[in-house]
Design a binder for these strands. Structure first.
Length: 215
DNA sequence: GACCAGGCACATC
DNA sequence: GATGTGCATGGT
């Protein structure tokens, strides 16, 4: 399976090239984006983030002191704005109380422990936690999302109902534990998902992975 | 207008 | 433990 995973990566990289994830100017921005993009297209998240930037509010202390209703109004374009405002607040509280709002201190923490801490924050589930670990902190953790599951399932690499941990294990077991590789691999899977593996209207016959279906 | 998007928590059975 | 539902904007 290791060879197959490497071949898939090669094909995707050849087809799409580097994806330049995560599109954020700072680790903090990436963490905020990870929460805002929950079940939401990135274009809607971008609007919310640029809105925060425009008002000079993309800052842990400023966001934390903002009234929830006010924060919700600022991130409206990202959808689920009330719940996401609360989730951001929950994360910020954790960020301040546990790490003094210092990315550097957070990055020094043991990855497994930090992951458990993030999962304990209400509103942060496995994908959001792993996105923060990988894309904001460059920890070697593979991010699994709906596209990853769908692509793997359609290619019979995993079962259709495989849980998050199993899909993650599937990638992490055989690949080099390299944050750059995990970063690019997941971004490429999302790209493939968007272009060729939608829920409806999948374009299997022209998908870059079509020919390796039975390798 | 229907369907979906880089999820998660919670209720109910 | 599995299945269903609320949360909500914006693009196709």
């Amino acid at each position: 399976m290791k060879v197959k995973l490497q071949l898939i990566f090669k094909r995707l990289y050849a087809a799409f090239g580097p994806q330049q994830w995560w599109p954020g100017e700072s680790a903090f921005e990436v963490m905020v984006g990870a929460i805002l993009t929950q079940s939401t297209s990135w274009s809607n998240v971008e609007k919310a983030i640029s809105n925060l930037k425009k008002k000079k509010l993309l800052d842990a202390a400023k966001l934390y002191s903002l009234p929830p209703g006010k924060l919700a109004g600022l991130i409206k374009s990202a959808g689920y704005y009330n719940i996401k405002a609360a989730r951001l607040k929950n994360f910020l509280k954790f960020f301040f109380t546990r790490y003094g709002a210092e990315i550097k201190r957070m990055r020094q923490e043991n990855t497994g422990i930090l992951r458990q801490q993030l999962l304990a924050v209400k509103g942060i589930g496995p994908e959001t936690a792993d996105s923060i670990l990988l894309y904001a902190l460059q920890k070697p953790v593979f991010v699994v999302d709906a596209y990853t599951k769908r692509i793997c399932s359609r290619h019979n690499l995993i079962g259709p109902d495989a849980p998050y941990s199993q899909v993650q294990e599937f990638f992490m077991r055989d690949l080099k534990q390299d944050p750059k590789l995990f970063n690019e691999y997941h971004a490429l899977l999302v790209r493939l998902g968007k272009d060729y593996c939608r829920k409806q209207n999948p374009k299997c016959e022209i998908c870059p992975l079509w020919s390796i279906k039975n390798v």
